[in-house]
């Protein structure tokens, strides 16, 4: 049994500690908001926060997150929408929506580090997240919107 802290809840999981966090979240705990897109940290669909920093859960073994705090899209904000999620709705970002959990987790991490990011900052922080529907223009707008509606927050 391994103890794992996800979204401020402690889970006891019975699985080998070399299992990627993504599959512990999805198949063992049952949190399916974090997506599988490539399995090799190339698409960003599996992005979660580990101790507040963005990480690709598909290549992060369970052993690496023992004793750390994991935050997934489900735990980003309880009961209300996080300002970044609200900005995503305001700008009507999602199309198919499959990549958006990862996009939002990357964007939240960016805004935490740089509350007022430049276009270059956005490119740098977001280029690891692929969107095949092509929502990039709206993602850029939503990040800028969130940066003005919640300066320095989150």
């Amino acid at each position: 049994m391994t103890s794992l802290n996800v979204n401020d809840t402690l889970y006891e999981v019975d699985i080998e500690t070399d299992t990627p966090l993504l599959w512990v979240l999805r198949d063992i705990i049952g949190l399916t908001g974090t997506k599988y897109g490539c399995g090799v940290a190339l698409c960003g669909a599996c992005t979660v926060h580990i101790n507040g920093k963005p990480a690709r859960s598909c290549v992060t073994p369970l052993a690496e997150v023992i004793g750390k705090q994991v935050t997934t899209i489900e735990g980003l904000s309880k009961n209300t929408l996080h300002p970044v999620q609200q900005a995503w709705i305001d700008e009507q970002v999602p199309q198919c929506g499959f990549c958006q959990s990862g996009q939002i987790m990357s964007a939240v991490a960016l805004l935490r580090k740089k509350p007022h990011p430049t276009d270059m900052d956005i490119d740098q922080a977001m280029k690891g997240n692929i969107c095949r529907c092509g929502t990039y223009q709206r993602i850029r707008a939503a990040i800028k919107k969130a940066s003005t509606t919640s300066p320095g927050k989150s």
Binding site: T32, K35, Y36, T72, P94, G97, I104
Partner: peptide
Amino acid sequence: RLDNKVKVTGQAIFGQ
């Protein structure tokens, strides 16, 4: 869009 909220909160159910 009617599907925006579930798609920004991770609640939308995809096949996966």
